[in-house]
């Protein structure tokens, strides 16, 4: 008996409609899987008075696809996504990221919306989704709004989500003909928080970087795109010299800190290397 969870009122709605009606008023904290929330409650970071358990809402657990996008229900468990054929085939970056997230026990409970809404700078599902330019659908009893994921995060543990909203769906546009690479650097080889994570998608056409998408975790107050690097590269000749020039700009995109896990210096150094390596690999990939 180590921790005492604070007391709270608990409600498990029967369906999505009831859930949305309930959170219209009052300060309800959604419990999607609870894997982060309960930890926060144990260490006193959060102490919600009312918890609404949305983990059973089957309306929020799905993966659908058409030619241009994959739609992921926010309540989908990470392990479900890992085992999902659509995710595996169409979203290899996300699949790789989830593979290296937490442990089997946590992936069986934790949801993708929970990972995003918790808004940790180290949320590993975010970089791949940012690369895809994913949009998140925030639903409430009065309707829904769609927000680009890049605008969803405000800072460490802060998002644009209102108290009366849930993250219903993640809309992931598909990328065609890209080179992909995902990295997670941690302090051991499994079950560990990221020190740096990175997802990258590159397209080269006619010897020109026609598109470059880079997103990173644990190197800024929130998961971010490396827009300065991307902008520098797009339209340039796909050559090492351009890559070398561009990657230094990443210091404009990120602002790593030193903490108990790693120093800012290390995070910056590794970020630059991973950028260099993945971009170089992309040249080889398209050379074939």
């Amino acid at each position: 008996m180590y921790y005492r969870l604070p007391q709270f009122e608990y409600l498990r709605p029967n369906d999505l409609h009831q859930a949305l009606e309930t959170i219209r008023e009052g300060d309800w904290k959604p419990l999607a899987g609870g894997t982060d929330l309960l930890l926060d409650m144990k260490n006193g970071r959060q102490s919600p008075k009312k918890i609404i358990d949305i983990s059973r809402l089957s309306e929020l657990r799905y993966v659908r696809t058409n030619d241009s996008r994959v739609l992921i229900g926010g309540g989908s468990r990470l392990q479900e996504l890992l085992e999902n054929v659509i995710v595996k085939e169409k979203l290899p970056l996300l699949s790789s990221a989830i593979y290296e997230m937490a442990s089997w026990q946590i992936r069986n409970i934790a949801t993708i919306a929970g990972n995003l809404c918790n808004a940790s700078p180290a949320a590993d599902s975010a970089p791949p989704l940012l690369v895809h330019g994913a949009r998140v659908k925030l639903i409430s009893s009065s309707g829904s709004r769609t927000v680009p994921l890049s605008e969803f995060f405000l800072g460490p543990r802060k998002t644009v989500l209102s108290n009366n909203e849930l993250m219903g769906e993640i809309d992931v546009p598909l990328l065609e003909g890209y080179y992909y690479r995902y990295y997670k650097i941690g302090r051991r080889h499994a079950f560990t928080l990221s020190v740096v994570s990175m997802a990258i998608a590159v397209k080269i056409e006619n010897g020109i970087f026609s598109d470059v998408r880079i997103a990173m975790g644990s190197v800024a107050p929130k998961p971010v795109r490396a827009l300065n690097v991307e902008k520098e590269l797009i339209g340039k000749e796909a050559k090492t010299v351009e890559i070398t020039k561009a990657i230094d700009l990443v210091s404009e995109d990120i602002s790593p800190i030193s903490d108990v896990r790693a120093s800012a210096e290390y995070r910056m150094k590794v970020t630059k290397f991973l950028l260099k390596e993945s971009l170089q690999e992309s040249l080889k990939y398209f050379w074939k």
């Binding site: 051991r188 080889h189 560990t192 108990v260 896990r261």
Partner: peptide
């Protein structure tokens, strides 16, 4: 390779849980 207690200036252990004091897993 990975285990070390880290103290801040106040003499507090900064990594006193198994998230931040890492020990080898099966894959290590």
């Amino acid at each position: 390779l990975m285990e070390e207690l880290k103290f801040n200036e106040k003499g507090e252990i900064m990594n006193r849980d198994l998230t931040d004091y890492v020990i080898p897993t099966s894959l290590d």
